[in-house]
């Protein structure tokens, strides 16, 4: 099953809508609460990043028997130094985003921490596509 979401950056307060909606879907599908929590946190972090850094984008969630794959694609500025972006505490968030409690520099590290696999494809001026995978078996 595939679920598609649009992330609209013009309303920053709405960030989290896609992860909240997908969380309800997972509950209905009977996925364990522990796995749902990990998926929701990682997806929420990705959604926030798309809103505060990349002017929104699209999220595609593919649910299979043994795995859930979440692909988050944006046409934002790209990530110049991926090693730095993966470093806990490093952030390029705006002062406005920081005032809201974002920009802790924990988004990418949290996505890695809470997913089973994480892949990042990024190109300056073109955009970033982030893939998160979660194992459902065992």
């Amino acid at each position: 099953m595939t679920f598609n979401y649009e992330v609209d950056a013009s309303v920053p307060e709405m960030a989290g809508r896609a992860s909240t909606e997908f969380k309800s879907v997972l509950k209905q599908l009977g996925v364990s609460a522990k796995v749902i929590r990990r998926i929701s946190i990682a997806m929420y972090e990705g959604e926030i990043n798309m809103v505060i850094h990349a002017n929104g984008g699209t999220i595609t969630c593919q649910v299979d028997e043994n795995q859930i794959e979440i692909v988050m694609a944006d046409v934002g500025p790209g990530i110049p130094d991926l090693d730095l972006a993966m470093k806990a505490g490093w952030s390029t968030a705006s002062p406005q985003a920081r005032e809201l409690g974002f920009g802790a520099g924990m988004g990418m590290p949290n996505m890695k921490k809470f997913s089973d696999e994480m892949e990042v494809e990024t190109q300056i001026g073109v955009g970033t596509t982030l893939t998160l995978r979660f194992n459902l078996a065992a």
Binding site: R37, I48, G101, G107, N110
Partner: peptide, 19 residues
């Protein structure tokens, strides 16, 4: 900092914040 809370807080905890 929301991401720190998301990474570190535990279920069933009471959260104190200025946000």
């Amino acid at each position: 900092l929301l991401s720190v809370v998301m990474g570190e807080a535990e279920e069933e905890q009471l959260w104190i914040t200025i946000q």
